[in-house]
Simulated assay, not measured.
Amino acid sequence: MKNNKIVITGGPGTGKSSIIHKLEDMGETCLHEISRQVTLEAQKEGIDQLFLTKPLLFSQKLLEGRLNQYHHALELDSQHVFLDRGLPDVVAYMDYFNTNYPDLFDETCKQHVYQKIFILPPWEEIYQSDNERYETFEEAQKISAYLYATYRRYGYDPVEVPKSNVDSRTDFILSNIKP
């Protein structure tokens, strides 16, 4: 089934997962962020922080996982599929960390198109670090700038979600996907 693949992105700690959970509670089809899963799988294999020790391998695993999500979204019988981050997020993070990567990353982003991108701006009042989120708020702001630039480079015009409570942000997103 043809459906709209809608990415919700933003720097770390901007409220993406809270919105995804709210959308899911409302009956929307959502695919969750996979970076924590990749990190936890690496930790089971004895690599404490794969992202820090082998950034290209970590990014390759993220690209594979997000590509699998993209293809899975195509199979879902739902008008809209919301994704917590998209393929260009991988490139944005690698650019932020000045990590060299093969052309495959760029080509994958060009070949797999999303219908709408919502971006959540950095918001210090809700930002929290944890075991898998080790960036400072200042780093999160810089990552956000890379996300905006990367999505624009791939031809998207990200819609910025206003800072507000989860319900209002979710309503904003839903009201901006209607034709």
Rank of each mutant, 00 (worst) to 15 (best):
R152E: 15
I173Y: 00
N100S: 12
W123A: 08
C30M: 08
A149L: 12
L67D: 03
I126K: 07
T53P: 00
E139Y: 00
N3C: 10
N176R: 12
I47M: 12
L147C: 09
Y154D: 10
T150P: 01
E125N: 15
V81W: 00
Q43A: 15
D48K: 15
S129I: 07
G27R: 09
C109H: 01
E107D: 13
N3W: 08
R133L: 10
R152D: 06
T9V: 07
T39C: 09
I119M: 11
L74I: 13
T170K: 01
C30H: 03
L63W: 01
T99A: 02
Y134R: 14
A140T: 02
V91L: 12
N165T: 10
D25A: 14
G86K: 01
D167N: 13
G65S: 15
C109D: 01
S175M: 08
N131M: 08
T53A: 13
F118K: 03
G11I: 00
Y151S: 02
D77E: 15
M1T: 12
S18F: 01
V38N: 06
A92V: 05
K110P: 00
S18M: 09
F118M: 05
D77Y: 06
D157T: 15
G10N: 04
F58V: 02
D77A: 14
N165Y: 11
F105V: 06
Y93Q: 07
E139K: 12
L62R: 03
I126A: 07
I173R: 01
P88E: 06
R36K: 14
F105D: 06
A145K: 15
E139R: 09
N165K: 11
Y93A: 07
H80L: 10
K2D: 11
P121V: 03
E33R: 05
F172I: 04
T14D: 10
L63A: 05
Q115R: 11
S35H: 02
D25L: 08
H32F: 14
T150C: 10
Y146E: 08
I177C: 09
I20L: 08
E124Y: 05
D103P: 08
Y151N: 05
N165L: 06
F82V: 03
